[in-house]
């Protein structure tokens, strides 16, 4: 590692035409992609003017519909809590099955594929499918975030298990312990602290996303936010955004505490 790094430092000492060509290529790409996406300086300047107007219309925040805001925000919280709970419970076995150092290939392969599928779709896309399956409302959001939780915690949990010391596991196995005891005494103590870290992180992340899934009709405050945008009620948008940011920041502090208790 350190040798490789010092090697690179030496290499950087003289002009490296390959690296320079890389920077040029990057610049060319930026211009090309920018024109393709119609990202131009003119639009940016015009946008700035729009932005100023937009911000002007956001203030003062509209506080006339606090009741609606409160009930939607509560629903988002509820979605996040329920989804995290079931997501955590389900990701334990999935992560375990995906750990290549404990399980045979024919078990890890399907488990890893399942995790990959859960991970590759943004929760909002998964929410769309669940809205079709179980209708509009919080349930679709809950199911979508459960899928996201399995994808995230399952992957990290499997990786954490793959990094454990197998010596400790071997000792428990040597005592004739059945498989479940090997897991609870040999494996879990080694990964539990990290697992709790992942879970609290996922609670954070689910909370953020539970404010979004409403955009596709899966419950929570997202629907109201989207509607407010579409109706150009920017002062109400501002209130909702402030509420979301406040809740997320409070949740971040709370989950940090949770992590400390269960270290």
């Amino acid at each position: 590692m350190s040798e490789a790094r010092s090697g690179r430092m030496v290499a950087l000492g003289r002009p490296n035409w390959l690296v320079r060509a890389g920077w040029v290529a990057l610049g060319v790409y930026v211009v090309y992609a920018g024109s393709l996406l119609n990202v131009t300086w003119d639009r940016f300047v015009i946008g700035l003017a729009h932005g100023a107007e937009f911000i002007g219309r956001m203030f003062p925040p509209n506080v006339s519909r606090l009741e609606l805001l409160f009930s939607d925000m509560t629903e988002s919280l509820e979605i996040a809590i329920i989804a995290t709970f079931f997501g955590v419970i389900l990701s334990l076995p999935v992560g375990l099955l995906a750990a290549r150092n404990l399980m045979p290939v024919w078990v890890t392969w399907p488990a890893r594929l399942f995790i990959a599928v859960c991970r590759s779709f943004h929760p909002v896309i998964v929410a769309i499918l669940f809205v079709k399956a179980v209708g509009f409302g919080a349930l679709a959001g809950i199911l979508a975030l459960i899928v996201a939780s399995i994808g995230f915690i399952g992957k990290l949990f499997a990786e954490a298990i793959e990094e454990i010391s197998l010596k400790q596991v071997e000792a428990v196995r040597a005592s004739g312990a059945p498989f479940m005891n090997v897991i609870t005494f040999g494996v879990l103590p080694q990964v539990l602290a990290r697992f709790i870290g992942f879970c609290t992180y996922q609670l954070d992340s689910n909370l953020r996303n539970s404010t979004m899934v409403g955009i596709v009709g899966a419950g929570g405050i997202g629907g109201t936010l989207f509607a407010a945008f579409q109706r150009f009620d920017y002062d109400f948008v501002c209130t909702i955004l402030i509420a979301i940011i406040a809740v997320i920041m409070v949740a971040e502090v709370g989950t940090q505490r949770l992590r400390q208790v269960f270290q």
Binding site: V39, R43, I46, G47
Partner: peptide, 12 residues
């Protein structure tokens, strides 16, 4: 959503 309001719909 914010940038759609600012720059209009689209990739930008």
């Amino acid at each position: 959503l914010l940038f759609v309001a600012v720059f209009g719909p689209g990739a930008m």
